[in-house]
Amino acid sequence: MTLALFLRDRLLFIIMALIIIGLSISLLLLERERYPGYIEEGTIYYFIVLSLFFLGVWLAIDYLRQRTYYKELTDAIEKSDELQAAKIVQSTITGEQKLVARLLEEQNRAYLNELGKYRRQQELHNHFVLQWVHHMKTPLSVIDLLAQQAQQQSAPSAEEHKLLALSVQEETDRMSRGLEMMLYTARLDKFEIDLHIKQTPLHELARTVINAHKKLCIRHSIFPRVEGEAWVETDEKWMTFLFNQFVSNAIKYSKSKPGSKKLLFQMETFSSGSGTLKVIDEGIGIAPYDLPRVFDPFFTGENGRTAGESTGMGLYLAKQVCSRLGHVMTISSILGESTTIALTFEPRAIHIMDGEGSDSGS
């Protein structure tokens, strides 16, 4: 900070000081006219010099004690493209300067927090894209292998042809689910734009999703059933995505168990307008030590690594969607027996959506 800039910032104070000095001199001159010889001319000159001297001394001291602060502020401005530039300003003197320094510190902290959230989101997105590409290679490789086998067979029987078609369809279904998850992950960042709230019949939605997975359920001896009815305020498209995740997980972790298995949708609506939904499967369950982390992104757990199909994003996305819709989602499990996903719908929860979501994988 130059001396000229310092003086310009205090120009109003200097003018007021000079006005006060001028008024004082005027009073002295009036007194001299009123009482001739009472006030000597030298006294007036002495007062002028002394007043200007003290004004100059005060300005010099004020400039010297604040010069370091302004130099640090100038350096911080020159390095404003650096994240820690605000920390350069430390030599605060006045209360105003301390408040400004505190504001800079709070703004820097808020900026770094937002930057950290953005970087975390980018890392999750990039990780998911890479993992998604890897998982898409598997069904493509299987389809290519099935096509080669079909070409090598001179005249496949009707049964072999049917099995081949079923295998290809299963792999294309896996690709379709992967593409759907990728699409909904991209939409999650603009959740509020892609939202339409209305009274939705969960029982009809559950039957529609079950019908879409009917062939896989039959193939793996899984018998779904819907019990009760529930009308709740929610978004039908996002709830369809959630139900698809629940049914896909149930099939994924039930198909390895021998014999028939049940998949139960239990729902109920209360007079207050709230409702509950439970999705209960008879799969391999979740280990107790994995249960607290199932909503973490990319966490697959012991069963996910065994199945080999888990991305660790299904339950994470489901939890994020529920949080933003104002629904409460919990999960419980008995290892080797069953897993229960419970959703609670409150009539007013949808109007206080949590835009942040909660830190919560499959």
Rank of each mutant, 00 (worst) to 15 (best):
S141K: 10
E171W: 07
H161E: 04
K198F: 00
R187H: 07
G178P: 00
R207G: 04
L202E: 06
L124I: 14
V142E: 12
D194R: 14
F246S: 05
H203T: 08
K198L: 06
K237W: 07
V209K: 08
L163V: 01
H213K: 13
A158S: 13
H196F: 10
L242H: 01
E204K: 15
T208H: 09
T138N: 08
L205R: 04
W231E: 15
Y184A: 01
E159W: 12
H134S: 11
A206P: 06
H161G: 11
N126D: 12
D173N: 06
L179G: 08
Y184S: 04
K162W: 10
L166E: 11
L163S: 11
I251W: 06
V129L: 14
Q121H: 14
C217P: 02
K255A: 10
S141I: 06
L195Q: 08
L130D: 11
Q122H: 07
D144S: 09
K198G: 05
S141D: 07
F241R: 05
V133G: 03
R187M: 13
N211S: 12
E204T: 14
H213M: 10
F191E: 07
Y253K: 06
S167I: 00
S254N: 09
K137A: 10
T234Y: 01
Q121S: 15
T185D: 09
E159K: 14
E229P: 04
V232T: 05
R225F: 02
Q245C: 05
M182E: 06
S248D: 12
I143H: 01
Q121I: 07
R174T: 06
E170L: 05
T200P: 03
Q148V: 13
T240S: 13
V247E: 01
S141V: 07
R177A: 13
P156L: 04
I193Q: 13
Q152W: 00
E204M: 14
L164K: 07
Q152D: 02
M175D: 03
H135T: 05
E171I: 01
Y184T: 00
A155T: 06
G228I: 00
R187D: 01
R120G: 10
V247H: 04
A212Y: 08
A147W: 09
M175Q: 12
Y253R: 04
M181Q: 15
A230E: 06
V129M: 11
Q122Y: 07
S248N: 10
Y184E: 08
N211E: 13
V247L: 09
L140P: 00
Q169R: 15
A147M: 13
W238C: 01
H203M: 10
E123W: 09
A250S: 15
H127P: 02
N244M: 03
M182Y: 11
L216I: 03
M181H: 12
L183M: 10
T240L: 08
S221L: 11
M136Q: 13
E160S: 11
I197D: 01
K162Y: 12
W231P: 07
T172I: 07
H196C: 09
S157L: 05
I210M: 12
S157W: 01
K190M: 05
Y184M: 12
E171P: 02
H135Q: 13
N244W: 02
K198W: 00
V232A: 04
P139T: 02
K137I: 05
Q149N: 10
V209D: 04
H213G: 02
K214N: 10
